[in-house]
């Protein structure tokens, strides 16, 4: 247990390194392009435009509400899905370094989360440009300042857990991204629950879906609304269970990581 916290402390102390590394890794890919790192937002823009077109134009819903909702949802989920996608690879990808240098293991997770967060910030700029263009601009709610820490904390803790599991059981590394896709479609990210879903249907997709809570505590404030109490509850449960999972997994099996990667 103590060693896990020592690792955490050392990892935090290296904040300059992981912020720099994360930024570098993101920006170097887009060198020599006109839009630069704003290209990161490309996939979010494309997906949300396509979905907005389907729901807005073909189904005749109001683009001013549909586009911000869809884009905000994808914006939030892109960051949160770190847990299942990049999170599964944090340790595997750093295998060469892990086997040769005794850097704190938390470092790799912090770097990955920072990368996802920086991507989120890029996407956020494009998000505001897009919703301004369709006339759906709103002042964000202050609750984003609570939502972000809860989400980031869940990403660090669950990301570590998934990263460790995926380096021990290699199938998970390939399974997780598909799980992420499944959750993307099953969670009200680009659609709304409406009034149709009741009982167990609503329970699966929203009432007990931690991903829905995590998405909502970011999306709702961005759209100028307050997240529902239910969503706060889900998000906070995700964070607290994450901390517990981290404590158990990281303190018990941290020293095994060099053998697993």
């Amino acid at each position: 247990m103590n060693k896990a916290f020592l690792d955490l402390q050392k990892g935090l102390a290296l904040y300059k390194v992981w912020v720099y590394q994360a930024y570098h890794e993101i920006s170097s890919k887009y060198r020599h392009t006109i839009l630069g790192s704003l290209w990161i937002a490309g996939s979010m823009v494309t997906t949300s435009l396509c979905l907005s077109l389907v729901f807005g134009i073909i189904q005749g819903q109001d683009l001013r509400t549909v586009l911000p909702h869809i884009m905000g949802g994808i914006l939030a989920y892109t960051m949160i899905s770190f847990i299942l996608t990049d999170g599964a690879e944090v340790f595997i990808n750093a295998g060469g370094i892990i086997k040769n240098h005794a850097y704190p293991f938390t470092y790799y997770v912090f770097e990955g989360v920072t990368r996802s967060f920086l991507t989120f910030l890029h996407n956020l700029i494009v998000f505001y440009i897009a919703i301004a263009l369709v006339g759906g601009l709103r002042v964000p709610s202050w609750e984003i300042l609570l939502g972000l820490p809860v989400v980031l904390m869940s990403m660090v803790t669950w990301g570590t857990f998934v990263g460790m599991m995926a380096s021990r059981f290699r199938d998970l590394r390939f399974m997780m991204p598909y799980l992420s896709q499944l959750i993307f479609f099953l969670t009200p990210i680009f659609w709304t629950i409406g009034t149709n879903a009741k009982g167990w249907r609503s329970a699966i997709v929203a009432d007990y879906n931690p991903f829905y809570g995590l998405v909502e505590v970011i999306r709702a404030p961005l759209l100028g609304q307050a997240p529902s109490a239910q969503c706060w509850m889900l998000a906070i449960i995700a964070m607290v269970t994450g901390i517990i999972a981290w404590l158990l997994m990281f303190s018990a099996f941290r020293r095994r990581i060099p053998f697993w990667v």
């Binding site: 060693k3 086997k99 040769n100 240098h101 020293r255 060099p258």
Partner: peptide, 8 residues
Amino acid sequence: KVLAGVYE
């Protein structure tokens, strides 16, 4: 590697 702290 043990001296380096890689393996505990």
